[in-house]
Design a protein around this nucleic acid. Structure first.
Lengths: 146, 146
DNA sequence: TTTGAATAGTTGCATAGCTAACTATATGTC
DNA sequence: GACATATAGTTAGCTATGCAACTATTCAAA
């Protein structure tokens, strides 16, 4: 095994472990401390619905990079907490449209600052150019494999 | 919510979802296709033991960015598959040293090519400088939060 | 119009993640 | 030496992930 190859292994390790779990854990911790009983995964689904409401479950799969069973159960849990509702699509009876409730919109207000504060901390001392490079590289990695 | 802040949200989304899950899924798929019944999480523990054998569980927590219960159960499962053994430390009876078995060393030979091939595919068209930038940025993100 | 393929979603099963609470051992201070 | 504190590891309970197999609906081609 060449040195170069092990260095690529390290990159894998870094991508997969350090930064993403650190950001997720910090945000989750901030939610908990604010008394918000929501998981980071549930928040990430709501995040996409706040940008565009009433998406199909399949569309949520695409946007959150999760598979269908994961989204099914995340929506189950969000429905239990009355944060979303499944609505039958008129045009295609196979489709569930996932729509926000009023509570979810209130939750958006309460999580904006926490999320921004967490990202500000996470990105401290990192330049716009560096961020752009990271986004481009991770997009390339994704496109290379999917 | 300013435009700039939502762009930071996108970065979070990218770090957390796309690239890391794409790499993990591809590697897992390659293992399965090669008839290797090992999860990507188990492999990541072995990866650190191949670099340095007989680490304590706590040290494996540090190196894999997992918490203690997660490592406990990963080691449980690796022990069931007879890939590692827990050995009591002579100097500190609180400590379990996790040591590789002969089967695990054979497994290393069989997974090297798969891992390298996956990383080659993942990193196609990405320069050394870009990789270095990504590593530095993700390290900074980690240091900012932990 | 029927049949077969594709798509949307659910369920069962196994693994993994995090928190909190727990046991056992080690260490430092009086 | 005794006691408080810290550290290593385990267990329980919940949530989440991924795959495979399943149902229901849509669509297109014979």
């Amino acid at each position: 095994m060449s040195n170069n190859q092990f260095k690529r292994g390290e990159l894998y390790s870094v991508i997969n472990g350090m930064a993403s779990t650190a950001v997720a854990r910090r945000l989750q911790k901030n939610f908990r401390q604010a008394g918000l009983e929501i998981t980071i995964e549930q928040w990430s689904v709501l995040y996409h619905l706040w940008k565009e409401d009433c998406l199909s479950q399949q569309e949520l799969c695409n946007r959150t990079f999760r598979d269908k069973p994961s989204i099914t159960r995340l929506i189950d849990n969000l429905e239990k907490q009355k944060l979303v509702r499944r609505m039958a699509s008129k045009s295609d009876r196979r489709i569930n449209l996932v729509c926000l409730t009023e509570s979810a919109r209130e939750l958006q207000e309460r999580t904006i600052d926490l999320a921004n504060q967490t990202m500000n901390e996470a990105l401290l001392g990192i330049s716009r150019e560096e961020i752009d490079t990271v986004k481009q590289v991770l997009q390339k990695v994704y496109d290379n494999l999917v």
